Amino acid sequence: MTSVFDATVCELGEGPLWHPLRQQLYWFDITGRTLYTQTDDETKAVRFDTFVSAAGWIDANRLMIASARELFIHDLNSGTNTHVCPLEADNAVTRSNDGRADPQGGFWIGTMGCNAEQDAGAIYRWYRGELRRLFAPITISNAISFAPDSRTAFFTDSAVAKVMRVTLDADGWPNSEPEVFLDLGPAGREPDGAVIDRDGLMWLAEWGSSRVAAYAPDGSLVRTVPVDAPHTTCPAFGGPDLTTLFCASARQGLTASGRAAAPLSGMTFTAANVARGQQEHQVIL
């Protein structure tokens, strides 16, 4: 069982990122348009004027952040933002969702409809100045993650409940057709965000299931970590030795009675000595 890492309640907590240089966890409340971090038991918040959902670290002071309309660089010290490129800027229906840096220094980001409109989204990769659409249509982009071999990527359309696997070339671009890695449809589970640990296990948040589940490279279920919130959204590994599991959660989608029954929903959770994660990859400009 996890415990509460931070009691800040997010309507739609997402995108936890352990910054290896700052030794801090960052996470988002997408609909709250806020980036959070915790230092010395103090929670700090940075507000934005649009939805923000995912980040990758560039150096000790800068993050690449995905918003509803662009990728931009956020300076953690000065608070200034620098535009990188548009992200479906002409489409008022969509926003960014799940994202993660890849082993080659690129940044993958998914989009989706603000109201989960069917097939409204896509998955993109930014790499050395180029933003390229990789997979479409996607209804709810999630589970963007990378195996330790640096040649395998994963993603899902949560609405389909299938986690896909695709091989990458030396520069990190997909060079095969995606194949099914996990089909959670028969079990009635919905895949959300995911991260791969150092041994190649996928730690997958399962929306509506109050858990993070670990799957082996052959797709078999290895173990589960219960979370005291129905809607787990995305895990991350952090801490000095990367053995601490963090997980964001959401209140979105819960009825009033559901929120009352799960009062910790929307908080960010932690569990010690679960597995050893990979260090989050650096975005190379």
Rank of each mutant, 00 (worst) to 15 (best):
Y36R: 09
A250H: 02
S176E: 06
G99F: 07
A194Y: 05
N81R: 12
Y127P: 01
A120L: 11
Q23K: 15
L21C: 09
T152Q: 08
L242Q: 01
E179D: 12
L184R: 02
I30H: 12
R189G: 00
G200S: 11
R100Q: 11
E130I: 10
R151N: 11
C114S: 11
L168V: 07
N81D: 12
V163M: 05
S3W: 09
N91A: 03
M202S: 07
G172F: 06
G208K: 01
N273F: 07
S3V: 14
D119I: 13
R62M: 12
P103A: 15
A120S: 14
I58D: 04
H281N: 13
N273I: 01
T233E: 10
T37Y: 12
R132N: 00
Y124M: 07
D75I: 04
F146V: 12
N61G: 04
Q252I: 15
G13S: 11
Y124I: 13
A159N: 15
R125K: 13
G15L: 07
P230G: 04
S158N: 04
V283D: 05
L131T: 10
W18E: 04
F237W: 03
G105A: 13
G129N: 11
F28V: 01
G200L: 04
F146L: 10
N77T: 09
L71G: 06
V93S: 06
